[in-house]
């Protein structure tokens, strides 16, 4: 049963990843990207990590996908882009992709990674919380700083100059 689910998820994830890059309409590309992200979340469910899976859904679908959609709609004049990539570059890219996939796949298949299996239960999400507050706590603080910095930075960037220049009182 799980194998069928795995195969389906693989098809969804990889298929929509390709679609995200190749569909001509950017909106549909973004929706396909959401498919990829959702597929990855499905993999996380398969891996007994519902916390990460739901976090992935909440963050990627809840905020990143919204941001991307919003940007794409804002940039609405160029919804369908000219297919300007030339063939040579495309074939070079395909070759690069194949080389990467084959080489890395060979490395993975050839390595001792195949021997790693487990029957142990998955880590509970309380362990994650525990590791957050005991071991990774400085990283959490830095995380907060990153978010603060990125939010203020993006706000300053996205704010329009003319609105900035005559700021309203209200």
């Amino acid at each position: 049963m799980a194998d069928a689910v795995f195969l389906a998820l693989t098809v969804i994830t990889i298929g929509s990843a390709i679609a995200a890059l190749e569909l001509r309409s950017l909106i549909y590309g973004s929706i396909a990207l959401m498919g990829t992200l959702g597929g990855i979340a499905g993999f996380f469910f398969l891996l007994d990590s519902p916390f990460v899976a739901l976090f992935q859904l909440a963050v990627y679908v809840g905020s990143i996908a919204v941001l991307i959609l919003f940007t794409v709609m804002l940039v609405r004049r160029e919804l369908i882009f000219k297919n300007i990539e030339d063939r040579r570059r495309k074939f070079a890219g395909l070759a690069l992709m194949l080389v990467t996939m084959v080489a890395l796949g060979a490395v993975f298949l050839d390595s001792g990674i195949k021997t790693i299996t487990t029957d142990e239960p998955a880590a509970e999400f309380r362990d994650i919380g525990m590791s957050f507050v005991t071991y990774y706590w400085p990283a959490l603080i830095l995380m907060a700083l990153i978010l603060a910095g990125s939010v203020t930075g993006s706000l300053v960037l996205a704010k329009r100059e003319d609105v900035e220049n005559d700021q309203r009182t209200s």
Binding site: T13, I14, A17, I18, L21, T36, G93, L94, L96, M97, L98, T100, M101, L104, G105, F108
Partner: peptide
């Protein structure tokens, strides 16, 4: 790895 390849492409 497949996804990585697609990304690089």
């Amino acid at each position: 790895v497949a996804l990585l390849g697609i990304g690089i492409y």
